[in-house]
Simulated assay, not measured.
Amino acid sequence: MYVYADESGNTGKNIFDAPAFFYQGVIMAVEDIDPILKPLIDEYCKANGVSRTHAHQMPADEVNLMCWKIIELLDGLIWCPHFVSICKPYLAPTKFLETFFDSFENEAVPNQWYNLNGNRLSMAYALEKILTLKNKQEFWSAFLEKDYLTLSNCLENALHYLPRYVNESSDLYDVLCGGLKYARRNVHRFTIPTQDSKRHGYKIHSPNGIGFTSVLEAAHTFANKHRTKVTAIIHDQNQEFKKTMEECHEFFKSGYFIEKHPDVPPLWEPAEFDLGKLLLKRSGDSPALQAVDIFTWIFQRKKDVRFDEIRNELTNRCDPFHISPVVALLMGKGLLGDAFFEQFKRKAFDI
């Protein structure tokens, strides 16, 4: 089995820079698809006088047609796409939640609130509203620098805005209020994870790091479904995140977290089929990576009706991984029904 992955671009430390979304695309197949796609890619490059395909440099109708041709070639195999979509600014409130509301460290947060999906989504959505843009930016910077004084100020600001968006009569309000107060009093007790240096510490928490983790989880799912070992994960060259990807790959190579029920915390599961080796390759040298670029370009254009048919064709073949406030709201509604909305004041749903 081979896994080809590419991303929409590096984000660096600043998750608040445009564009707001980070995207990652993947093609997984039980055999190497580079030689299968090479004649198609070479034919296009020769006809257009280019050395490789770049979806953003191609006319829209040609991208659409090329995408259908790639699918037609791959449909002779066992294969599957995978996509990741991350609202970058939303990583600030989700990291705020992970940092201060882990019930293992915060004695004011009941275990079922941090570890059960419906409650956790309620807290994440509430923090998205409670934290102002300035507070999110200050928290993200302080988190990366382990600046406890600024983190304490962020907790204080969150407490100030809490009553504006969350109903005081709700259990959600009590948990958030108690958790914020406990964290503010004991801010130095909380673990702020880093890697071996400040220079690399942010990368595992970046959209790139989170997106690559989703790639590895998808690879495990595909390997289990088709009872096959991964020969290689081939990712477009990325020197800035090379070390982070290598560390993630090593960690998840022989195991993964699995959620067996929405009301049970994810459990670590040893993998029957490991993830093979990680290879970083120039996309210009890989027809498969160029195909991933084309798929990902199509996936991003959710508001362009010209690509509705082909985009639906791709997404219907997989279970895309999304992180955004809208997804949190929809998932919260799905798990809790009307009880999700009853926790909030009306302005929490203003766009």
Rank of each mutant, 00 (worst) to 15 (best):
S169N: 15
T221E: 15
H226K: 05
I192V: 12
F212H: 13
I210K: 14
K198W: 07
K225E: 14
D171Y: 05
H160D: 11
S169F: 09
P207G: 01
V187G: 01
A183F: 06
S169I: 10
K198P: 01
R184S: 09
P163L: 08
L159I: 14
L172R: 06
V166F: 08
N167D: 10
V166S: 04
G211A: 03
A218C: 15
R185K: 15
G211S: 04
F222W: 08
S170G: 06
K225G: 13
S169R: 14
P193M: 00
E217H: 15
S170M: 09
G178N: 02
R189K: 15
G178P: 07
Y173T: 09
H160I: 11
L216V: 03
Y182M: 11
E168A: 14
H188Y: 07
H226G: 07
K181L: 11
E168G: 05
K203V: 07
D174Q: 14
R189F: 06
K225H: 14
D171F: 02
S169C: 10
L159V: 08
G179P: 03
R164P: 06
Y161K: 08
F190P: 00
L180D: 12
N208S: 10
E168I: 08
H220A: 00
I192T: 08
Y173I: 12
F212A: 03
R184V: 01
N224F: 06
S206I: 07
T221G: 15
L176Y: 00
K198D: 13
H188E: 09
S170Y: 04
H188A: 06
N186H: 14
R189H: 14
V175M: 05
S214V: 10
K203S: 11
H220N: 04
L216H: 02
I192K: 03
L180V: 08
H188G: 02
L172Q: 06
A219M: 00
D174G: 09
A218R: 13
I192S: 01
F222G: 03
Y182D: 13
D174V: 08
L180A: 11
T213I: 00
H160K: 11
V175G: 05
S214E: 14
N167S: 13
T191S: 10
H226E: 11
A218V: 10
